Amino acid sequence: MISVGIVGGTGYTGVELLRLLLRHAHVQVSILTSRTEAGKRVADMFPSLRGHTELEFSDLNVEQLKQCDVVFFATPHGVAMQHAEELVAAGTKVIDLAADFRLQNLEQFENWYGMQHVCPTVLKSSVYGLTELNREKIKQAEVIGNPGCYPTTVQLGLAPLLKGQSGLINTQSIIVDAKSGVSGAGRKASLGMIYTENADNFKAYGVAGHRHHPEIVEALENISEQQGQFDQLIFVPHLVPMIRGMLSTIYVDLTEQGQQKDLQALYEDFYKNERFVDVMPANSSPETRSVRGANELRIALYRPQPSKLVILVAQDNLVKGAAGQAVQNMNLMFGIDEATGLEGIGLLP
Rank of each mutant, 00 (worst) to 15 (best):
E107N: 10
L97D: 06
R102I: 11
A99Y: 15
T121C: 03
W112S: 02
E136I: 07
F101R: 08
E110D: 06
G129P: 10
L130P: 02
R102N: 12
V122Y: 06
D96M: 02
Y113A: 00
K124S: 14
G91C: 03
L103M: 11
T121P: 00
L97P: 04
M115Q: 12
D100M: 09
M115Y: 09
D96I: 08
V122D: 01
V127S: 00
L103K: 02
P120H: 06
Y113H: 12
N134C: 09
F101S: 00
L133M: 11
Q116N: 06
Q104Y: 13
N111I: 14
H117G: 02
V127D: 01
N111T: 15
P120Y: 08
G114D: 11
F101Y: 15
P120I: 05
N111G: 05
L123P: 03
S125E: 15
H117E: 07
G129A: 06
Q108S: 15
T92Q: 05
C119K: 06
M115W: 09
A98P: 08
K124M: 10
F101N: 03
H117F: 13
E136A: 10
Y113N: 03
V118L: 12
D96S: 09
G129W: 15
S126T: 04
L123R: 10
T92L: 08
E136M: 08
L133H: 07
L103G: 00
K124W: 13
A99C: 13
E132M: 10
S125K: 14
N134S: 05
N134M: 13
E132G: 04
I95V: 12
L103S: 01
Y128C: 00
V118S: 07
N111M: 15
D96N: 05
R135G: 00
L106M: 10
F109R: 00
T121L: 14
G91S: 06
Q116E: 13
N134R: 14
A99H: 13
V127G: 02
L130A: 00
Q116D: 08
W112H: 12
G114K: 11
T92S: 02
A90V: 04
V122S: 02
T92A: 02
D96Q: 05
F109V: 04
E136L: 14
T92I: 06
H117A: 03
S126G: 03
N105P: 07
V94E: 05
E107I: 12
T121D: 14
T121H: 15
R102T: 07
L133W: 09
L97F: 10
A89E: 11
Q104E: 09
L130T: 03
T92K: 03
R102K: 15
C119E: 12
G114H: 15
V118Q: 07
V122G: 00
T92N: 07
L130G: 01
R135P: 04
G114Q: 13
L130Y: 09
A98S: 15
R135L: 13
G129F: 13
Q108D: 14
A99K: 13
Q108V: 07
A99W: 12
D96P: 06
V118H: 07
Y128M: 05
F109Q: 03
T131I: 13
N105K: 07
N134D: 09
S125W: 09
Y128A: 00
A90N: 03
V118K: 07
F101Q: 01
L97R: 06
